[in-house]
Amino acid sequence: MNLVEAEAKALEEIGSVSSLAELEEVRLRHLGRNGVINQLLSEIPELPRQEDRKSAGEIINSVKEKIEIALERKDQELKRKDLKEIDRSSFDTTSPGISPPTGSVHPLTEFREFVRDTFSKLGFEEVYAPHLEEDEYNFGLLNIPPDHPSRDLWDTLYLEDGRAMRTHTSNMQVREMRKRKPPIRVMTFDRCFRYENVDPHHSHTFTQFEVLYVDKDVSMGQLRFLSDLFLKAVLGEKTKTRFRPKYYPFVEPGVGVDALCPFCEGKGCRICGMEGWFEIAGAGLVHPQVLRNGGIDPKIYSGLAWGFGPDRMLMIKQGIDDIRYFYEGDLRFLKQF
């Protein structure tokens, strides 16, 4: 193929190209390593005369340049065309995104993490105690001897082997006191069990959170501090709470903690049972006998225990009207969280 033919063919091919990919093919065919132009250039050294070599080089390069310019023009043209096409294309950007598989954390777990974070900032350490418990840790060492009438506070499930299903997380108290030396700051968030039929407001399986703090000079004032701090974190800065007397055999004095009903702000509504207040936590100063049972000298140390029922708190906070949702595994419920 001579140079004139090569030039004509290249320019013709460039003219008929309709896509950028084709254009690249054409470029490689003509200007590539094995293209006609390079072939001709490689033949130049074979020319015998210096002037011929020089003019041949010039001529071939000028053709090469023409082809390059044509390629560049075509390239520009095609890109403009391509852009116009992209501009003209349509895509519904309002179409919802493709969902990744969506999981959900159980609301009690979410709450557990929140509560743990709040108290671990104050140096409370998470502890566990058995669900299947010896009578003495669940009752006896907490001032609740066998057959004592105060046991009526707890309808208990028993195993055939004589152990109880713990009725509260307080079974951790004496266990932890015996393991540790004051100051003791521990917390637990775990399940408890009672002999109770399941209905929208009751469940034989439920959750408790409890902290125990034993140190020198632990007082009702500090109980108030801890209680306010936590309830404000959960229910909001504006939350109003109040203390009133409450009896648990393992504390003295005993405290019931009420929170002002967030729905009616104390006026009394159906949700708070016309009371204006919710009983939300139970607390008190650890009974000296319980401290002694834990190997701690009540003359030197005192302690506080404070606990609440996360199920009930979440029901109030999130407007959940049936405790059974927590334990039935209904994905219509769980996937909301």
Partner: peptide, 11 residues
């Protein structure tokens, strides 16, 4: 994160 829902059930 892998699409599981956490459940809690009776013991």
């Amino acid at each position: 994160g892998n699409g599981f829902s956490e459940i809690k059930t009776f013991p």
